[in-house]
Nucleic acid binder design. Sequence first.
DNA 1: GCAAGGATATCG
DNA 2: GATATCCTTGCA
Length: 223
Amino acid sequence: VEVEAYVGLDDRASHAHVGPTDRNRAMFGPPGVAYVYLVYGMHHCLNVVTDAAGRPAALLIRAVAPLEGVAAMRAARIAAGAARRRIEAPAPALDADARRITAVEAETRRLEVLDAARLASGPALVAAAFGLDRSWTGRDLCDPRSALRIELPAPDWDGAEPARVIATPRIGIDGAGEPWVSRPWRFLLSDEPSVSGARPGARASAGLRPAGGARVRSTVERG
DNA sequence: GCAAGGATATCG
DNA sequence: GATATCCTTGCA
């Protein structure tokens, strides 16, 4: 229900703008392949490569509305939370360890009752809800045998109408400079409660406040 | 409002 | 080799 486009070598907001590296190499490969990176040292983000090999471009999946598998997503969020606060070093950290365990237990209780619409309502939450990390980079998402894959909608699917899609600038790329910070390359379904930044109980119009404190100048695109 | 936290790009 | 920064989240 929410994505961002990162397109070409010129795009200063894209990991690819520095040329191919060990991290971003998948972006330079064939389309339909996953690129999962670690951000802020603790969160993973899922991208889908979208252009031909040699032309780096990808779509960052920023939010997902669960249609099924809610229990599995909840379990994956809980597992990811525990892994993120893994207990380390023994000795003088005894008190710290106890606090971490308490924090994991508190997060688990919170996730057990979290509204399903909020299980993947942000880029790092998407990766956590699907149990993804960097090892998924390079996976062919068009392979029907892949556990994570892109499928065509069912014939009777009556989901996204084009009129519901709005475009805004991308989130968290202030350092990229113009014109990239202003390019309206974030696309979302405006009335979906699962978009990032939305708060429980907030109405759709107020739910467009993005994470990261970036301003939104929304450009409504119809058709 | 900001801490958490590790890889990465970039600078010396 | 050192370090500022990063396509974020959830808590204080």
